[in-house]
């Protein structure tokens, strides 16, 4: 590799660019408006409303605790998606990212990764608390956190794809929800399924394997389709 002739500072390599972008995304996610805490608050609110809507009887609630927790998780994961690309499109940062070192596919993946760390991780920590409040057995709390963590990666990746698709749309937030929620069905099915299997004494491993497969699949699709959508929005 030849060094650049002029005296400009050496561009950070791919690894450096990845780290810089990840740090920037995390900074943006954590700064202002409560960041991920808002998503956790929304998650807590949903967890409070859903059982009351269903009657609140522990006998009816306990069997569906995992499912309700997963529904709340999916909805809470939608919250901050709208700003994921829209903000960068508005202030021109997306154009800079497009001409930078990283291919747009990686940019989409890194943004999804940051979304996972910033939103998915706190939600995964909140998930067992919410599930216990709904009546899930305490012994299943670690599984609830683990499955929520894996599922959170799927939500972040699919959500990033939806956010990229909805770039430049009127009422983007609502549109992202309509586009993304059908894609959230498999992780909700597998995630809640893992808890259900464990609650009935079966091994949750198959459901977790399906959940992980969904995440890997979503990673491939979201990278390429998301990058295509971002390029299209930049026109």
């Amino acid at each position: 590799m030849s060094r650049p002739v002029d005296a400009e500072p050496r561009p950070p390599g791919l690894r450096g660019a990845t780290r810089v972008l990840l740090e920037r995304e995390l900074d943006l996610a954590w700064s202002g408006g409560g960041g991920p805490l808002l998503a956790c608050g929304f998650f807590a609110c949903l967890t409070a409303v859903l059982p009351l809507a269903a009657g609140g009887d522990p006998r009816t609630l306990s069997p569906v605790a995992g499912g309700i927790a997963w529904l709340a998780l999916a909805l809470a994961s939608l919250l901050s998606l709208e700003r994921l690309f829209e903000r960068d499109l508005e202030d021109g940062a997306l154009d800079l990212l497009a001409i930078g070192h990283l291919p747009l596919e990686s940019v989409v993946l890194i943004k999804a990764l940051a979304q996972w760390i910033a939103v998915g991780l706190p939600l995964a920590l909140t998930a067992p608390v919410a599930a216990l409040a709904l009546g899930l057995p305490v012994s299943l709390a670690p599984l609830a956190a683990l499955s929520a963590l894996i599922g959170g990666a799927g939500f972040a990746l699919t959500g990033a794809l939806g956010a990229a698709l909805a770039l430049g749309a009127k009422r983007g937030g609502l549109l992202i929800a309509v586009v993304v929620l059908p894609l959230f069905i498999p992780p909700v099915v597998f995630g809640a399924g893992a808890l259900e299997r464990a609650a009935s004494g079966q091994s949750p491993a198959p459901a977790l394997a399906f959940l992980t497969a969904y995440v890997l699949f979503a990673g491939v699709i979201a990278a390429f389709a998301g990058a295509a959508a971002v390029r299209n929005a930049q026109g």
Partner: peptide, 12 residues
């Protein structure tokens, strides 16, 4: 329907 630029909406 919700992206004003028709071509961009079509491609998305």
């Amino acid at each position: 329907a919700s992206i004003d630029d028709e071509q961009k909406g079509a491609r998305a």
